[in-house]
Nucleic acid binder design. Structure first.
Ligand SMILES: [Zn+2]
Ligand SMILES: [Zn+2]
Ligand SMILES: [Zn+2]
Ligand SMILES: [Zn+2]
Lengths: 134, 134
DNA sequence: CTTGACCCTGTAGTTGCTATAGGGTGCATA
DNA sequence: TATGCACCCTATAGCAACTACAGGGTCAAG
C-alpha cells in the first residue's frame, strides 16, 4: 500500500503521515524499488489509533504514551486509565476557562451602546484603567 | 520607564513586549543614550489594552483590528461590536466542541474494566476497527 | 574596579501540522 | 518512442503567540 492510499483510508494528509514518521510516532515502512514507502496492515492499524486518539484531543505525547502502553499487552490498563483521566481533567479545565471568558465577553458586549467609539464601553473596558472588580 | 518596569506593571514578559514591537503591535519607543527603550504613558495604555484583549481570548489580529478601530474615535462602534460578537461565537463553538469530546472520552473511560491491556476497552476503542456508531 | 541587575540583538525552540520548491517514478496514450 | 499525468521523494519554511537562550553592552553601588 503506498502513502496516498493510506492517507485516503485514514483521512490523513500525506504530509502528516511523513511527519508522524519523522517524529518517530509511526515506524518507517519498507520501500519499493522506486523508493516509495510501502505500508502494511500494522501501519494502518497504528495510524488509525493515532488519528482516533488525536480526534479525542490527546496530545502527540499522550498518544505516544498510549501506544507504548498498548504495545505491552500483559500489563494492567490502569496506566491507560490514568492518561485518559488526566486528559479528561484538562478538557474540563479548558471548558471552565472558556465559560468564564464567555461570561466576561458577553457582559462587555451587553454594555455597548452602539454609539461613537469614544463612548464605547468595550473599548473603554479594554483600556488601561479598566479595573472591573473581577 | 524602561522595559522591565513596563513588564512588571502589565504582567507581561520583557520578551513579549519586544515581540509585540517587532510585529508592529506596539509602537517603537524612544531610546536612552545607552540604547535602552524608554516608554511613556501612551505605551503603557496600549500594552494594557493588548493584554486585556488577549486575556479575553482575542487573537493578535483581532487585537490589531480593535486597536485600529479605537484609534479612530469619531466612527461608530458597531465594527467593534462585530469583532467582539465574532469572537464570542468562536468561543461558543469551542465550548461545544470540547463538550462533545468530553462526552466521548467519558464514555470510553467508563468502559474500562481496569484489567489487562489486552482487554482494555479504551485501547480497543482507539484501534483500527473501532466503529462505535457516532 | 568589580559585581550584579538590568538592557540589547538575533536566533532557535515550542505544538501539530501544512505548504511550498525542485526534483524522480510509473503507467497510459498519441 | 515521446509525452503527459498522477503519484512519490527530500528538504525547508511557514502558521500562532510567544519563550528561551547566547553572547554581548550599560549603569549604579560598594
Ligand atoms: Zn464583568
Ligand atoms: Zn460600543
Ligand atoms: Zn460512544
Ligand atoms: Zn482499560
Amino acid at each position: 500500500m503506498q502513502i496516498g492510499e493510506l492517507a485516503r483510508t485514514t483521512a490523513t494528509k500525506v504530509e502528516t503521515i511523513r511527519f508522524y514518521e519523522k517524529i518517530g510516532l509511526l515506524p518507517e515502512p519498507g520501500r519499493t524499488s522506486g523508493n516509495y514507502r510501502d505500508y502494511g496492515a500494522a501501519h494502518l492499524a497504528r495510524l488509525s489509533f493515532i488519528r482516533r486518539a488525536r480526534d479525542l484531543g490527546f496530545t502527540l505525547d499522550q498518544v505516544r504514551e498510549l501506544l507504548t502502553l498498548s504495545d505491552d499487552s500483559s500489563r494492567s490498563c490502569s496506566a491507560v486509565d490514568t492518561v485518559a483521566r488526566a486528559h479528561l481533567a484538562q478538557i474540563d479545565q479548558k471548558i471552565a476557562d472558556l465559560r468564564a471568558l464567555r461570561r466576561e465577553l458577553d457582559e462587555l458586549i451587553g454594555q455597548c451602546s452602539q454609539g461613537a467609539i469614544s463612548d464605547c464601553r468595550i473599548i473603554e473596558a479594554l483600556g488601561p484603567s479598566a479595573q472591573n472588580g473581577h
